[in-house]
Design a binder for these strands. Sequence first.
DNA 1: CGAACTTTGTGCGGCTCCGCACGGAACCTC
DNA 2: GAGGTTCCGTGCGGAGCCGCACAAAGTTCG
Lengths: 238, 238
Amino acid sequence: MKVEEKGTRGEGNQLLARMPAALADLMFAHLEPVSLPQGLVIEQPNEPVEHIYFPTGGVISIVAMNGEGNAQIEAGLVGREGMSGTMVVMGTDRSPHQTTVQIAGTGYRLEADRLRDALEQEPLRERLLHYCHTLSVQTAHTALANAKLKLDARLARWLLMCHDRIDGDEVMLTHDFLSIMLGVRRAGVTVSLHILEGQGLVRATRGQIRILNRRGLEEMVGGCYGVPEAEYARLMRD
Amino acid sequence: MKVEEKGTRGEGNQLLARMPAALADLMFAHLEPVSLPQGLVIEQPNEPVEHIYFPTGGVISIVAMNGEGNAQIEAGLVGREGMSGTMVVMGTDRSPHQTTVQIAGTGYRLEADRLRDALEQEPLRERLLHYCHTLSVQTAHTALANAKLKLDARLARWLLMCHDRIDGDEVMLTHDFLSIMLGVRRAGVTVSLHILEGQGLVRATRGQIRILNRRGLEEMVGGCYGVPEAEYARLMRD
DNA sequence: CGAACTTTGTGCGGCTCCGCACGGAACCTC
DNA sequence: GAGGTTCCGTGCGGAGCCGCACAAAGTTCG
């Protein structure tokens, strides 16, 4: 799932790669390289989206929150395999979720209207719809993990999904940040990380988690990792 | 959210209602009235979908399962406001989920290829994409509920979503069925139902739950019900 | 009407995670 | 290098749900 190349035409993001030249004027000419600092709020709940982001590095996170704003949970994780602003592909300009940069990185952004224009091109629309489908499969499996897995396994799953989207094996994140994503206590993350460390799967230091044994993490998650990834692979190959 | 009318052109299903006449030959002529017996499997994981279902009554349920098939959870609930087979709208023919009839009812079905033809019509495609969007918001909020709510609140949320989709106030379901949807013990459902009963919100008898106090149920769920419903209302009015 | 089956009620020990709380370690700033 | 800030480690009592198990009540069918 790792793609290394960088460039000026959207290279480095898998949704933009290998798209037909017909999109050059409609879309690629309008892509604007941006950096994605940690904590940047990309989309606010129920407010019109102005820019679509295509990461080439780093991780952004889609957070569902309840009506009273007192509960929130990560519902989707997006890296260079994907995009923000999927609701535009679905024909609307806003969603009730919040989207923020979870792990700093880089990418391109595009005005939402430019994307709307470009969606007239069938190959692009189909590709982005396929991505929206895999993202919603990912969300469904997050619902599954939240209901059925113990905290250490959920943490392992999250680390795997994150690892898929970064270069190298080091995730720069605090326990506190993770606890919000997983919807648990910060102390719970600390303890669960120790469990993973005890099995030699990761090494945690202040603000950083190094993945040591991917295979081991996958075993720990026991079948609750990989289905959305397989769906992505099925639809995005070619 | 209640729609009562029945007919021969898809009336009774809110996605099919008030669509332009241009779709008559492409789609409405091919709609086939069907009954939806409880337990009917509408879609199998990773197998091509042959028919799309538009319920006019009853409830169908989209279930996400892990790779090893030993864990499953309801990821989406669909009634006469929606449809099965959303992956066809997204441009593919299969998904890793299973779809079954949860509460017996009626509806129309359509060959998947007929839907593919009809999607060429912009108004239909936009409407169905909007629905897919709200369904994925629903899934995200299921992930939220699974992570943050206690069992009695999750049960209340499920009953509310179900109540939105049926006529009357009686849900015909066993505790066992519910426990599978919620991913918990059957005995846990029994106890939680007693809690709801104790507060006068529902009345449970063998194989049946009667909703007595919707407002009370909504209060019990505390802001974790209603966001997907509001998104549906926003996009589907007109 | 009695037997077989389905559904619901209840209990018990145990694990997981919660809320709360505090101390210590690492890092940053002046 | 002193002081503040952020981050991490740990502990305690308790709530919630688990797995397991069994009894009772309702339903179906011969």
